[in-house]
Design a protein around this nucleic acid. Structure first.
Length: 564
RNA sequence: UGCGGAAUCGUCUAAUUGGUCAAGACACGGCACUUUGAAUGCCGCAAUGCGGGUUCAAGUCCCGCUUCCGCAUCCA
C-alpha cells in the first residue's frame, strides 16, 4: 500500500499540520485513517489562496493514503450559485486533484441538521429567539460589555419545538425569529454568546429549491458536516480559531464523531488581492474583463494567463504551512512558472516593437530557410524552419545609436549575431522628420551562417529577428501587476480601491510573429525568445489568428544604469 | 480596556525538542558558461522583537514588556 515514492530527495521536514497527522496515524487515532476536505462556499471563483488550501488538503490525503472530500458549503442561498459550483470543480480538477466519489454539499445535510437542532432544543441547549438582528447584537454586548440574556432564553422545550417547526413551515417573515444555541452570554469569546443556528430566509436555494425557508449558519453546519463525513482533520484558516470552541461545543453536545479543527495562516502574495469581495468589485466594476481575466489571481485567471498547474502546486508546496501571517513575494510564484515553462514551452521569435532592418548586401527578391531548435532544454522538441530575407524586423530596444559600453546589442558600426542566422552590422540609421529612427541599413556576413565567423572574430550579443516579408501580425497582450503596491488593496482612508489599479496592467501590441505561430492552438505556451513566456488566449483567439497573453517576462540580466 | 493567535536574514521557511561557526529557498550583488544579457553552475549578502532570569549551555525553558493579526453578521 505504501506509495513507491522512491523519489527520495531529503528527509522532508513535516509542517506542523502534517506532524499532527503523522502523530495521529502513529497513535492509531481514528483507526489510523485520514480524511480531509476542501469546503468552498460556491459564491465566487477560486483564487490563489484556495489553491493553497486545495494543495494542503488533497496533498495530505494523497501523501498518507487517505481521502479528501470536496464539499460545497452552501448554507447561504443569498450569494450562491451553480455557476460557481461548476467553476470550482473545474479549477480543482485542473489543479490536478481528484475527489473521486467524495463530492458533497452541506445542503445535503439540511434534514439531519434540522433533526439535530430539534435534539438540542429537547436537551435544553437551543431556543427560538424573537429578537431582531439589531437587538441580538445589542444584547450580545461587547469586548468589555457584558451580554444580556434574550427574553426568550428560558422558553419551554414545548414552545421552542412548536416555534421552530413553524419557522420551518414558513409562518414567519425573514429576520422575525432565529434559533440560537444556549451557551453563555458572558463568554469572553463572542462566538459563544448564544450564537445563531438558524435564520429565516425566504429564498430559493440553488440545490434545495424552495424546500427550506430556514437556513443553518456556518457554525452550526460545518463541524456537523465534517462529522457526518468522517473527516479526521478539518483544516481551515486562522480567522476560525475563535470558532473552534463553538465547533467543539456542537459536536460534543450532539455526542457525535469529533474531527479536529486545525488552523493555518492564509496565503498572502505581494501585489495580489485575495479578498473575494474586492475581486468581485473588480469584476462588477468592469475593471477587468471577468473572473478569468489573465490579471486576476483566480485559478481560472492564472490558467488563462498561462500559469501551468504544476507551477501553482510547486508554489503552494514551497510557501510553507505555519500560523505566521506573512506576505509571500510574487517573485516566488513567477520562479516556478518560469521553471515549468522553460522545460516545456517551445521557443519562437516574435518582435513586439518592430524596427525595420534592410540588409543591403542580401540579394533582392530572395529568401532562405533557417533552422531553429524548438527547445534547447528538450532535444525531443525537434527543430523548425523559419524564413530569412533581405528585410527583417528587430526589436526597437535592441538598437541604440549612442550605446553605453555595457550595451552589447546592435549599434552603428558594430556587429551582432542574428539568432540562428548570420552576423549583422549596422552602417546607417534612417530617421523621419521628427528624428525617430525608422530603418537601419545593414550588411551581413554570409560566411557566418553557422553563427561563428571563420576568422574567429567574436560578437558579444545575439538578437532575435523575423523576416519582414513572411512575418504575421498578431495581437499580443502584455500584462503587469494589477496593483503596484506590495500590499494590494491596502487603500488609505478616503481613497477608492479602484483608483489604485495599475493603469499599465494591460498593454496591447500588434506584434510581428514568425509564420509557424499561425498554427498555434488555444492554450499553447511559447517562450518568445529574450522576451518572455506567452500563451495563446483560449477565449479571444480564432483559428489562424492567435492572440497571445504574456504569462511572465523572462528575467532580465541587462539593467541599464540610470546614472549618467 | 476583553478574548484568541503570532513574532528567526529584505521575503517565505528550518533548526535533532536545551547542545558545533543558526540551515535552505526567493530576492539582491558578483563570477563562469552560453547562438536567449534567459536557463545552468559557483561565490557573496543577510536574522533569533526588547529586558531580565534559570543553566556549563537558551532561537528553544520561566517572568515582564513591545509590536502585529483576527474576533462583537441571523457571512463564510
Amino acid at each position: 500500500m505504501n506509495a513507491p515514492e522512491s523519489d527520495n530527495t531529503e528527509p522532508e521536514r513535516l509542517d506542523f499540520i502534517r506532524q499532527i497527522v503523522a502523530d495521529d496515524i502513529a497513535s492509531k487515532k481514528n483507526g489510523g485513517k485520514v480524511v480531509t476536505r476542501f469546503p468552498p462556499e460556491p459564491n465566487g471563483y477560486l483564487h490563489i489562496g484556495h489553491a493553497k488550501s486545495i494543495c494542503l488538503n488533497f496533498g495530505i490525503a494523497k501523501e498518507v493514503g487517505g481521502t479528501c472530500h470536496l464539499r460545497f458549503d452552501d448554507t447561504n442561498p443569498e450569494k450562491e450559485d451553480t455557476e460557481y459550483v461548476e467553476s470550482i470543480m473545474e479549477d480543482v480538477r485542473w489543479l490536478g486533484f481528484d475527489w473521486g466519489d467524495n463530492l458533497f454539499y452541506a445542503s445535503d445535510y439540511f434534514d439531519q441538521l434540522y433533526d439535530w437542532a430539534v435534539k438540542l432544543i429537547k436537551d435544553g441547549k437551543a431556543y427560538v429567539c424573537d429578537l431582531s438582528a439589531d437587538e441580538v447584537s445589542e444584547y450580545r454586548g461587547g469586548w468589555n460589555k457584558e451580554g444580556k440574556d434574550s427574553p426568550n432564553r428560558d422558553r419551554s422545550v414545548e414552545e421552542n419545538l412548536d416555534l421552530f417547526a413553524r419557522m420551518k413551515a414558513g409562518e414567519f417573515k425573514d429576520g422575525e425569529k432565529s434559533l440560537r444555541a444556549k451557551i453563555d452570554m458572558n463568554s469572553s469569546n463572542m462566538n459563544l454568546r448564544d450564537p445563531a443556528m438558524y435564520r429565516i430566509r425566504h429564498q430559493h436555494h440553488h440545490r434545495t429549491g424552495d424546500k427550506w425557508c430556514i437556513y443553518p449558519t456556518y457554525d452550526w453546519t460545518h463541524g456537523q458536516s465534517d462529522s457526518l463525513e468522517g473527516i479526521t482533520h478539518s483544516i481551515c484558516t486562522l480567522e476560525f480559531e475563535n470558532h473552534r470552541p463553538l465547533y467543539d461545543w456542537y459536536v460534543e453536545a450532539l455526542g457525535i464523531h469529533h474531527p479536529q479543527q486545525i488552523e493555518f495562516a492564509r496565503l498572502n502574495v505581494t501585489h495580489t488581492l485575495t479578498s473575494k469581495r474586492k475581486l468581485l468589485a473588480l469584476v462588477e466594476g468592469g475593471h477587468v474583463s471577468g473572473w478569468d481575466d489573465p490579471r486576476m489571481p483566480t485559478i481560472s485567471g492564472m490558467r488563462r494567463r498561462g500559469y501551468p498547474a504544476d507551477a501553482l502546486r510547486d508554489f503552494c508546496a514551497h510557501t510553507g504551512v505555519t500560523k505566521f501571517n506573512g506576505m509571500t513575494d510574487l517573485a516566488l510564484l513567477e520562479l516556478y512558472v518560469r521553471g515549468s515553462l522553460n522545460k516545456t514551452a517551445n521557443r519562437a521569435m516574435v518582435i513586439i516593437d518592430p524596427l525595420k532592418v534592410v540588409i543591403e548586401n542580401y540579394p533582392e527578391g530572395e529568401s532562405e530557410m533557417r533552422q531553429a531548435k524548438n527547445n534547447p532544454e528538450d532535444d525531443e522538441a525537434g527543430i523548425r524552419e523559419m524564413p530569412f530575407g533581405r528585410e527583417l524586423y528587430i526589436e526597437r530596444a535592441d538598437f541604440m545609436e549612442d550605446a553605453p559600453k555595457k550595451f552589447f546589442r546592435l549599434t552603428v558600426g558594430k556587429e551582432v549575431r542574428l539568432k540562428n542566422a548570420f552576423f549583422l552590422k549596422c552602417n546607417e540609421v534612417i530617421k523621419d522628420d521628427s528624428g525617430e529612427i525608422v530603418e537601419l541599413r545593414c550588411t551581413y556576413d554570409p560566411e557566418t551562417s553557422g553563427g561563428k565567423a571563420p576568422d574567429g572574430r567574436k560578437v558579444k550579443g545575439t538578437i532575435h529577428w523575423v523576416s519582414a516579408e513572411h512575418a504575421v501580425d498578431a495581437e499580443v497582450r502584455l500584462y503587469d501587476v494589477l496593483f503596484e503596491q506590495e500590499k494590494a488593496g491596502d487603500v488609505p482612508d478616503g481613497e477608492d480601491l479602484m483608483d489604485t489599479i495599475n493603469p499599465k496592467s494591460l498593454e496591447v501590441k500588434q506584434a510581428k510573429v514568425e509564420p509557424s505561430l499561425v498554427k498555434a492552438q488555444a492554450g499553447d505556451s511559447f517562450q518568445f525568445e529574450r522576451t518572455g513566456y506567452f500563451c495563446v488566449d483560449a477565449k479571444d483567439s480564432s483559428p489562424g489568428k492567435p492572440v497571445f497573453n504574456r504569462t511572465v517576462t523572462l528575467k532580465s540580466g541587462y539593467k541599464p544604469k540610470p546614472a549618467e
